[in-house]
């Protein structure tokens, strides 16, 4: 049963990656990566059960943390980059 859930998650991850490569806008890519991250967290948790190793949950937790920080970081970066671009255009 875990296997079924794991496979469904795998397929979802694949689709997310596809979206990340296809774009078309930057935000689509970030969205896809975020989705991919959440799916990975779940995937690792399910996998931990599949293999009978509950300490995998630690990794899943770290993933959840890091995924959030990365997405926010990436967003802030592009936001920041835009403000600089704007100030350049005006100058």
């Amino acid at each position: 049963m875990f296997l079924a859930a794991a496979i469904a998650l795998m397929v979802a991850m694949m689709l997310a990656i596809l979206r990340a490569f296809m774009g078309p806008t930057l935000y689509d890519r970030i969205l896809a990566v975020n989705l991919f991250g959440t799916k990975t967290v779940l995937f690792i948790a399910v996998l931990g059960y599949l293999m009978g190793r509950p300490e995998f949950l630690d990794i899943a937790l770290v993933y959840a943390l890091i995924n959030f920080i990365t997405v926010i970081g990436v967003l802030r970066f592009f936001e920041y980059k835009r403000t600089v671009d704007d100030s350049k255009e005006e100058a």
Partner: peptide, 10 residues
Amino acid sequence: MCFSGAVGIH
């Protein structure tokens, strides 16, 4: 659900 969400983004 996860699968349909992923389909949705396409």
